[in-house]
Amino acid sequence: MSYDGERIYLRFLKVEDATALLDLQYRNRAIFEEISASERSETFYTLEGQVALLERWNRAREEGKRYSFGIFLNNTHELLGEISLFELELNSTTKWIVGYVLDQVQNGKGYMSEALQLVLNFARKEAGIRRVEAGALPDNAGSIRVLRKAGFHEEDRQNVKIKGIWKEHMMFAVDLQ
């Protein structure tokens, strides 16, 4: 099943997407590693590592704990990025977080704004999620703009570990009533 936008569409990532996902991750490695809270070993940047990642994401989707979508261009079906909703438990409070990455050559074209709207519609209409949170580094103006455009509002600041270093993040949320 796909979720169609004006210029892009989303669909759940499958193991068959591992090669395209690896290419996306490898080409954008330096940028993605600066914003990702996930630990990325050298194994992550192998086909086997991406297959294992996709298998974990698909198991989590079956459990209703993560929904990971590829962002594809309508006319070429090229994988432009990835956007995920995932359940996180902090201090015995369950939260739904949205995280996303986009190929750096596609930045500034509005694709992520379109993808985020599609994901929020999925969250509200199909997954029954009522609130979504997100974090952004204060100097990541593009991501902050995408979040605000989608109706997220800043709630506070929080430290998040990136590559072993605690970095302040602006924390945003949107209620999906």
Rank of each mutant, 00 (worst) to 15 (best):
L79G: 05
S41V: 06
L47K: 12
E42Q: 05
R29E: 12
G70R: 12
Y67N: 05
L47G: 06
R56W: 10
E48Y: 13
F69R: 01
E78H: 06
S68W: 01
Y45M: 04
I31L: 07
G64F: 02
Y45Q: 07
S68E: 07
R29M: 11
G64W: 02
E33Q: 14
I71G: 03
R61Q: 15
L47A: 04
Q50P: 12
A30I: 00
A30L: 11
L47H: 14
L80M: 12
R56H: 13
E42M: 01
N28G: 02
S38W: 05
T76A: 05
G64R: 07
E33D: 09
I35V: 15
V51T: 10
E48T: 14
S68P: 00
V51R: 06
I71Y: 10
T46Q: 06
G64N: 12
I35F: 06
L54R: 10
Q50I: 14
R66K: 10
F44N: 03
S68R: 09
E63C: 02
R66P: 00
T76L: 11
S38K: 03
R56P: 02
G81K: 04
A37K: 05
A37L: 03
R27G: 01
E33N: 09
R27A: 08
L53Q: 13
G64I: 05
N74S: 14
N75P: 11
I71Q: 01
T46Y: 12
A52I: 02
N75D: 15
